[in-house]
Amino acid sequence: MTQGEPLLNTAKDTISMQLVREALLQSCPPGVATAEVLGRVDIDPARLDQPDARVPASAYARLWRLLARRCNDEFFCMDPRGLRSGSLAFICRSSMAQPTVGAALASALEFLTLTFEHLQPVLVRQQSLAEIVIGEPQQEARRPFTYFTFWMIVHGVACWLAGRRIPILAIELRCAEPDFCDDYRVMFSQNLQFSRPRTRMIFAADCLDLPVKRNGEELQRFLAQAPGNILVKYRDPDSLARRIKDDLRQRPAAQWPETETLARHLCISASTLRRRLAEEGQTYQALKDSVRKELAIGWLAQPNLGFAEIAERLGFADVSSFHKAFRKWSGSSPGHYRTLVLASS
């Protein structure tokens, strides 16, 4: 996300109807009230029962705003105390007064800790890695939608403060994995781990040192666009980049094709392949690096896999090359990342 650029910016951005149902579950009674609310934001109530239906992300953003006004709660009534209308504006206004993203996040999380009854977030820096850990009463975990709505708010504000998207290395959740996860992986990270001892988000700590340089005009523009600008756009599953990444995941890294071979497989020229990927804001090398990073993060959470085996699986010539690449991807050594991830296993 570049300076001032919303994440939601095209008519093609969509949200699964599954998330619409989740948003309504505690914030709007079923029946006539639901139909009336959905009608006001141009969502067809008849599509609620269609599991594969999708709605424009702009309509989902309007639904979020409408429910927040009706319930005086910007968190879909998922906490006993709630997040009263105006909370997002207060978080942004108070956070932008801080000198760095780290100080701003600490300020925002302190407010949320005071506001929520059941979610008590804290920012922890572990050398080259940082994590936001949600403390909770020792009781049944909340539904995934609750946690992901929390991350959507916190991560969205952090990206705005930083002036760019902050890459997420992993998200762990106490709850069991739901039947539907596609949009969550698009919004946050492919590396979602469920049924874990605690709920947390892990990212590179150097993001915390980024300066906060936002002014009142930018704040007003951000709030005018919220929450649409913190909804990461749905990525077309038929896009060329998505198809290539899916194909790479199915092959050992040693068998990943070169550009020319891949182009022939797709029945296009190499120059056309590069052009079409560029139109999607991608390169073939970036796609390979992205899949390698995704696989590495997942394998590092498996203590039985040694670094040499992971390096070989990823197609690196030796362990040192893997270490160098992983540090470039995440800002951390593989060993430090593994220690942090396995510490609470």
Results as ranks from 00 to 15, higher is better:
97 A>Y: 00
130 A>S: 13
110 E>Q: 15
125 R>C: 02
126 Q>D: 11
118 H>C: 05
98 Q>T: 06
130 A>E: 14
100 T>N: 08
128 S>C: 03
96 M>G: 03
113 T>F: 10
125 R>I: 01
102 G>H: 12
107 S>L: 13
87 S>V: 04
119 L>N: 01
107 S>D: 12
87 S>F: 10
96 M>Y: 13
118 H>V: 09
92 C>S: 02
112 L>P: 01
125 R>V: 02
115 T>Q: 06
104 A>G: 09
107 S>Y: 10
129 L>Y: 12
104 A>T: 04
126 Q>C: 06
102 G>A: 13
121 P>L: 01
107 S>Q: 15
107 S>G: 10
95 S>W: 06
124 V>P: 03
97 A>V: 00
104 A>P: 01
127 Q>K: 11
98 Q>G: 00
101 V>G: 07
94 S>F: 01
123 L>R: 04
92 C>R: 00
125 R>K: 11
123 L>H: 02
124 V>E: 12
101 V>W: 00
87 S>Q: 10
120 Q>I: 06
105 L>F: 00
113 T>R: 15
112 L>T: 02
108 A>G: 15
119 L>A: 09
90 F>S: 07
116 F>A: 01
91 I>D: 07
125 R>Y: 01
100 T>E: 08
113 T>P: 00
107 S>M: 15
91 I>S: 04
121 P>A: 06
126 Q>V: 07
126 Q>Y: 06
104 A>S: 12
114 L>V: 12
115 T>W: 02
93 R>F: 08
127 Q>I: 08
105 L>W: 08
99 P>D: 05
115 T>V: 05
106 A>C: 11
112 L>G: 01
102 G>M: 09
115 T>G: 04
97 A>Q: 15
120 Q>H: 13
110 E>F: 11
87 S>H: 06
99 P>G: 07
104 A>Y: 11
92 C>H: 09
126 Q>H: 12
123 L>E: 00
129 L>E: 04
122 V>F: 12
125 R>H: 06
115 T>M: 07
97 A>P: 03
94 S>V: 08
116 F>L: 05
109 L>R: 01
125 R>T: 05
120 Q>N: 11
108 A>I: 03
110 E>L: 13
121 P>T: 03
89 A>R: 15
110 E>S: 14
97 A>L: 08
113 T>C: 04
108 A>E: 12
88 L>A: 05
100 T>S: 14
106 A>T: 13
96 M>F: 11
113 T>I: 02
109 L>G: 04
120 Q>D: 07
128 S>T: 06
100 T>Q: 08
